[in-house]
Design a protein around this nucleic acid. Structure first.
Lengths: 203, 203
DNA sequence: CAAATTTAATTAAACGTTTGTTTAATTCGC
DNA sequence: GCGAATTAAACAAACGTTTAATTAAATTTG
C-alpha cells in the first residue's frame, strides 16, 4: 500500500503548506505530522520542492469536462451559472489546495510554478470570457466589461474559500466548519446568481 | 537622517516580503538589497519579526477619516461608492503592503498578527455593512445578502490589486505598470459602480 | 512449500549550508 | 573625545539532503 502512504503524505503536506506557507514548513514537521521518517520524503518524492510540485499537479483538474457539460445548457446565463456552481463545488472541497495555488500565483518564488498556474488559470478565464462575450453579442447580456466580470466571479469564490478564518470572524460564524457547510454553499451560489443576473441580464 | 534610512529599510523589506513571503526572505537578502550591514536590522528593529510588525503597523490607516468624509454624501449609494473609491486608491498606492496583509491573514503563522489584521478588517467590514443595511431599510437598496455584498467589494479590489502578475496575463496587458495605471483605476472604479448599482439599487 | 535471495521500505545519524542573532571592535559625526 | 552608527566575525540552531545500516516484503530457487 505504498500509494496510500504517498497519498497520505501528500495530504498532510498540502494542509501544512496551506496553513504555513512553503518555506515555513520543514521536512521535519511534515514527517512528524505524518508519522514517518525524515528521509522518506526524499525517498518518495526526491526533494521538498518536488513534493510540492506533486501536491499541485495532482489536483489541477482538466477544464475540458466542464466545457462539455456546460454545452447542455440553453442560455448563456445558464451556462455561466453552471460553471460558477462547478467552481464553487470544486473550491469548497479543495480549500487547502486553492489557498496554496492562489498564494503561489502571487509569489516571485518558484516563478516557473507561478507561470504554470497562471497559464492554467488563463484557460479557464478565457473560456468564461468567451461565454460572456457571446451572451453580449446575442443581446442576452448587457454590454459590460468582460474582464472585470470574469474577475469578479473568481474573486468572490476565491475570497470565500481561501479566507476561511477571516470570513468566520467577519460573518460571526461559530466555527470554520459553519462557514463551509452545505447551507452556506447554497447561499453563495444563490448570491452569485443574483449578482450576475442583475449585472448581466437585459430585461 | 536615521529615520530616512529606517524608512528605506522598511520599504525594501516590505517589497521583498510581498514578493517572496516572510520566511523566504533572509535578513541577509534584505541587508544586501538595502546596502546595509546584517547587524543593522537587529540594531534598528530588534529582530526580523519586529521589523515585519513595524512594516504592517506603519500603513494600517485609521478608518475613522473615511467615516467622517463619507458623511458628506447624500445617498447611501454615494456613500458606498465614495468608500469604494477611497479603498481602490489606497490599495493601488500600497499594493505590496496589501499583498503582505492578505497573505498574512490567511496564514496560521504569527496568529496574533493575523488576528490583529482580521480585527482591523472587521471594523471596515462592519462600517460598510452598516451603510448597506441602512440603505436597505430606507428602500434605497434591494434586500440582498449584506455580508456577501461587502465581501464582493473587498474581493474585487483585493483580487485586482494583489494579483498583478495574474491580471497582467489574463487581460493581455504589456506590463504590470499598465495594469495599475490611472486609466485602469478609473475603469475598475466605474465597473464597481456599475456592478453595485445593478445589484443594490431599487429602480 | 520452505528456504534463499533479491528488492523495497524504513531508520538513525551525519552532512554541509543557511538561518537569525549577538559580540566586540571600529568608524563616523558633532 | 564621546555617543551613535556601522562593521566583520562568530554563535548555536535549524534547514534539506545523503549515507549506510537494518528491517520488511517480494521474488526466485531447490
Amino acid at each position: 500500500m505504498a500509494t496510500d502512504k504517498r497519498e497520505y503524505i501528500l495530504d498532510v503536506a498540502e494542509r501544512l503548506f496551506a496553513e504555513q506557507g512553503f518555506e515555513a514548513v520543514s521536512i521535519r514537521s511534515i514527517s512528524k505530522e505524518a508519522h514517518i521518517n525524515i528521509a522518506m520524503i526524499s525517498y518518495y518524492f526526491g526533494s521538498k520542492e518536488k513534493l510540492y510540485e506533486e501536491i499541485i499537479n495532482r489536483k489541477l483538474i482538466p477544464f475540458e469536462k466542464i466545457k462539455q457539460m456546460s454545452d447542455t445548457h440553453a442560455s448563456y446565463f445558464d451556462k455561466l451559472m453552471f460553471i460558477a456552481d462547478v467552481i464553487v463545488d470544486k473550491f469548497f472541497e479543495s480549500r487547502n489546495f486553492q489557498i496554496l495555488v492562489f498564494r503561489e500565483m502571487n509569489l516571485n518564488q518558484r516563478t516557473h510554478m507561478a507561470d504554470f498556474l497562471i497559464e492554467h488559470m488563463q484557460r479557464n478565464f478565457l473560456f468564461i470570457s468567451d461565454i460572456i462575450k457571446k451572451g453580449i453579442r446575442k443581446k442576452e447580456f448587457k454590454n459590460t466589461d468582460v474582464d472585470f466580470t470574469v474577475m469578479t466571479l473568481f474573486a468572490i469564490i476565491r475570497m470565500y474559500t481561501t479566507s476561511g478564518m477571516m470570513i468566520c470572524k467577519l460573518t460571526n460564524k461559530a466555527s470554520i466548519d459553519e462557514v463551509y457547510d452545505a447551507k452556506q454553499k447554497t447561499k453563495i451560489k444563490k448570491f452569485i446568481s443574483d449578482l450576475f443576473s442583475a449585472h448581466l441580464l437585459t430585461r
